[in-house]
Every structure is written in C-alpha cells, then in structure tokens.
Design a protein around this nucleic acid. Structure first.
Lengths: 345, 345
DNA sequence: TTGAAAGCGCTAACAA
DNA sequence: TTGTTAGCGCTTTCAA
C-alpha cells in the first residue's frame, strides 16, 4: 500500500549549530564511533582512518563536546575543589599544585567557594554534585551536617585537606593543628619568653592550635595567655591593631603566636613603630610560611606546612579513585616544621 | 503468531546507579517532564504536583544531573576563567568578585591556568571549549594565535580583562597600562626625584607601563632610566635583590617604580637594611595596592586598580550575553588611581 | 496544567 | 579494525 505522507514532520529542535562528531565522521567517510575512537583511542584505529579523521577535524574546526561525552561515558573528567575563599591566599599553593597534577592527567578543575551560610553550602553542594565530578577536594570545613550527609550520599570520592579530623568522610591529607600549637608553645617557652599572647582569626583550626598552645603554656606554669580574636580579617593592619590591644591587656607581653604570617607581619610592623625590639624584647611567630616571611626584616619565624604537597597528593588520590585503582592509604599526615628565623631569639 | 523470545536481551549499559529524574517522577506519580518542570519552573506546575515531586526528591536524595540537562538544553551554566596562575594573587580579587556574581546567578566557575607553552594553551582551550561554557573570562594574554582563532571560532562570549587591547576578541574590561606608566613618571618627577629606575617582572603589560614611564622621563630631560627585569619572580626577595642591582648600576638612584607591590616592599625592606631613608633619599611606588600596601612602614605609595569591579562587571556582561540580552557597551575603561602614601615625599 | 515523543552529541556494548 | 544499535538523563517540541 502506497502512502503519501505529506505531513511527515519531525519535531524540530534547535541545535547549537556547532560541528559535531557526526559531521566529522561523514567528511572522513567513516562511522561516527570510528571517528570517536580515532580521537579518544587513536591506537585502536588504522593510520589511514586516523589521518582522515584528523584532517576532517582540522578542516571543520571540530571541538569535542565533553558534556555529551561525559553523559555517555559517565566520566565527567571534572574534579571539584571547595575552598573557603579566594582572597585568603593560604590555600592557593595547594590549589595550584592540585590543578597542575589534575591537568596533566586530563582533568579539569571546578571551583566553589564555601564561606557561606549552611543553606548556601547545601546549594553549592547541589551545584557541584549536579556536575558529577569524579572527585571533590575540600579545604574548608563543612559547617552543615546536611551538606556533609549529601556529600557522603553522592558516593563521590572526597579528600578533606589541611587537617586531620577524627571522623573523615573519606580520604584525608593534612597535618595536626593541635601538635602545631603545642610545638610552638614549647618553642617559645624554650626561648624563655614568659608572657605569651595569641592573635588569631576566627577559624576553628586556629582555635585548635591556640588551645593546644595555651594548654602547654599553663602546664609549664606560665601566667594567663591573652588571646585576641581578629574575626575574619587576616591582614597586616588587623595584626597591628591586635598587638596594640594585647599590650593594653598586658604591657609585659614578650611572645606572640599569630594564626597567620600576615598577622605576624602586622605585629612586627607595630613593634617597630613602638620601638619594641624584636626579638630581644618581643618574640613573634607566625603560621604558614608565606613567601615573604623569609624576607621581612628581621626575617619571620613561622610554621611551615607542605601546602604544595597537599595538593599533589590529593590530586593523585582522587585520580586513582576516579580510575578505579586501589588506594590503600587513606590518611596522610604531612607534618609541619617550626621555622626558626630572626623574630624569635 | 506467538513467539517465545527467550533471549530478548537488550544491550546492557552500566549506569551510575544514581537516582534519576525518572525515579523521582515515578514515585511522585507524574511524568518525567512534569517532575522536571516542578524543579526548574515550579510556577508552571500545580501546588499539588510540586509537593509530590519535592517529597519524592527528599525521599530519594535526588540531585539533578546537570550534565544531562546541559546536553539537552545547550545551557551548561558554566563560565570559564583563564588566569596565568594562582600563585600571583593579583588577579584573585577579580576572580573572587567574578565568582560571587556568577554564583548568585546560578553559574559555576571553571578555572584554567594559562602560563604554558603555546601548544599547552591550545589544549587548554580545547578542554575548556569542550565543556561548552557560556562565557569565557581571560586575564592573561593568549600567546598563541591559533588559540585566539580557536576562541573566536567557538563563538562563546569572551571578556578580556585587566587591559585595553587594540584588537579585542569580544568584550573588554580593564584599564590603560600605558597611562599608568606615564602618570607614575609624572608623579615622581613632580616630586623632584631625578634618578629613576624600574623593577619589573617579565610581563608584557609591565613592559607597556615601563615604556610609557621611560618615555615621559626622557621627555622631561632625565637621564637614562635603569630597568631591572626579575623574570617571573614577583616576590619580596626579588625586589630586594633587584634594588641592590639597581644601586650597582647607578648609586644615585632616588626613585623606583615597581611592577608589583611585593617587589616594592622588597625595595623598601632593602632600603631599611641599607639605612637609606624613604622617602627623603629614595621614593618608591608599587603597583596593585594589595591589602598590606597601606600597612607597611612607611606606608607604600602605589597604583590602585578596581580589581573587584573588573570581576563584577565582567560577570554581568557574560551573564547578559549568555541570556541573550543586548549588551551595548563592550569596552569598559575602569581607570586607576595613583595612591600617594609615605614612600614618596 | 500535564504528558508523549524525540533528540541533545556522544560512547558502551555487541557484532562482524 | 570497523560498524550497528542503543542508550546516558535530561529538556524541547508539540499536543491535549
């Protein structure tokens, strides 16, 4: 039976109009999947086919659509990193190393910022999990328990970095903030500083460092340790102001532990303005060993952590998990070093 | 005719096993597309349906797969940013502002690093374009012409930031490096500094600033301006070393223009070590107005640019273009301010 | 306001 | 080594 079908319309979809793999395959005179193989696994394809396909790619300016590929293969080749913020550059060396390692294995970095309300944190996580990254790297702390639960439910490999928490979600690459606090206290006490103070940002990890610091100080028979909280302002000027405050509370302060090198630089600057000699009258020690710490005058004593290594190891862990390799060690304690320079005697 | 089809197997695909919209729809007792509407355009759906769907989402822990959604809708909700590197934090305030604005409109940031070979630059661009972002933000300069051509061919809206180039790819948000150079020269010359030097990183824009600087100096009848190139090391210690070099070339140097505040801080520190009085014997001016510039002692004179605003404006431009709004202004000159503090007399 | 069908552009699975 | 087919999980289009 013949049938004249005048209205044999299909549903029309706007497409992007971009060159697709199908176009490339047609021009090269091969099947679409063959073109796909030529681009993704060129060693599974004859040289002849490879050349034809590559030529067609050049000719058309084809750029692979990784969204479609990701959907088909369930491999997004995306790793997400969640950091508290960009401004506090303390994590950047880590992110830099992370990114370098990821890129060299063909992964791309999706960045999210977490310094939000619990509500915002959850929506950020929805955003990120929605992109189906093959791994998630977190430097901050998830404040919301729902967010944490969401992350676990997603079943995506996770590295929590910059810390050694008691109940890790999955993998852990960091160091002990508590040990840093006690080591720094012992260090200053060993130098016979007797009136200690702490200047710190409003940050849970800084609190763990300072609590351990205070504990050791008290155990050693020292007087009350004064603590100044500068809130979220980890700047040189906060350090200056905080040091003035500290002096008001105890004019005999002779040793200060700061939760960041910038704060420490503020203390140093203020001491110079007040003509307090560093390190004889005042010992200062920071945290982070940012690049300018060794170049202040006098050079800043501080605590160094292996920021870059944290990124590299984390990237390798996440890649290994993404590629279904067996990861035997889940927890990496990278330690720290108390760097003795000229702001302590 | 009856047919017993024992082997009616389909080709099996492993799926991720994650909850899909289909599952949610079934549980809610609606069609998949209705569930989709409930989540994306809830006002097009009855309250009853909305509640059923939301309940099913809660129950299953469903998280939307944006890869699939992106493929179907050709809207990735992704904006890519390409920066030279993470370490040189000068762009971070911009990226921070960019990200804030993007997130509040439901976009996600994909970050790429460009300080690579031309070859690497092209593959980075393939990576990025392959993800079909709806906009691309570039702070660096594309060294490869092929890369630039690729970007144009992709037809993705582009903002080039931190500069005003002569032949922009698309949109432009920045300031004139040339004008900065001449303004700083006039500024120092107006203060009667007579033996000028420049310390700069190996960076095309820094060169444009210093060339303009030198031109004005020569026009004003000054002697040869000495230039020290510190390569890629924009650190305080490079600044210290470079200032020593500068003094060797001309012991009478009394004014230095640095291509970054950190370099300037190095000069200041070295001057203090050498007991050279700032600003009477030596004027120093930096670039960037990083947060600690106002807190050095003496406080650093520098050039401020509107880093945050660059990010905000760029984000809004890219979002507007992604949403097919008309963008009338394509070029934004945000200007700069010479900030006079205490390192210049 | 809701739904059925088709298809976004690619790759996994199977077949030859 | 190459090809056929059937999806990946969603949204668009069209229809009711």
């Amino acid at each position: 039976m013949k049938q004249i079908n005048i209205k044999d319309q299909k549903k029309q979809r706007r497409s992007t109009g971009a060159v697709t793999l199908k176009d490339v395959a047609e021009i090269a005179g091969v099947a679409q999947i063959t073109a796909s193989r030529a681009l993704n696994t060129p060693n599974l394809v004859s040289e002849n086919v490879l050349n034809k396909v590559l030529h067609a790619v050049k000719q058309t300016g084809y750029v692979q659509n990784k969204i479609a590929g990701g959907l088909a293969s369930s491999r997004s080749k995306l790793i997400a990193a969640i950091i508290p913020n960009f401004a506090s550059s303390i994590f950047l060396e880590t992110i830099d190393a992370l990114n370098q390692t990821l890129v060299s294995s063909g992964y791309q970095l999706l960045l999210g910022q977490s310094n939000y309300s619990a509500e915002r944190e959850e929506s950020l996580l929805d955003e990120i999990i929605g992109r189906r990254p093959e791994g998630i790297f977190i430097t901050g702390v998830l404040s919301s328990n729902d967010a944490k639960r969401k992350l676990i439910a997603s079943n995506i490999p996770v590295v929590e970095a910059w810390d050694l928490t008691d109940h890790p979600i999955d993998m852990l690459v960091g160091f002990s903030h508590q040990n840093i606090g006690s080591s720094v206290a012992s260090f200053l006490i060993g130098k016979e500083y007797k009136n200690l103070g702490v200047i710190q940002a409003n940050d849970e990890r800084a609190f763990r460092r300072s609590n351990a610091f205070i504990e050791v100080a008290i155990e050693s028979g020292l007087e009350h340790v004064h603590v100044i909280n500068v809130g979220d302002s980890r700047t040189v000027s906060s350090g200056k102001a905080a040091f003035c405050e500290l002096l008001e509370q105890n004019p005999n302060i002779d040793g200060v532990f700061c939760s960041s090198d910038l704060l420490a630089l503020g203390v140093l600057t203020q001491a110079q303005i007040l003509k307090i000699d560093v390190p004889s009258q005042l010992g200062i020690i920071g945290f982070g060993d940012i690049s300018l710490a060794k170049d202040t005058w006098p050079a800043m004593s501080t605590v160094r952590i292996n920021s870059g290594q944290i990124g590299t190891i984390s990237a390798n862990l996440l890649i290994a998990r993404a590629e279904n390799q067996i990861v035997s060690d889940h927890i990496f304690d990278l330690g720290f070093t108390v760097v003795e320079r000229q702001t302590t005697r």
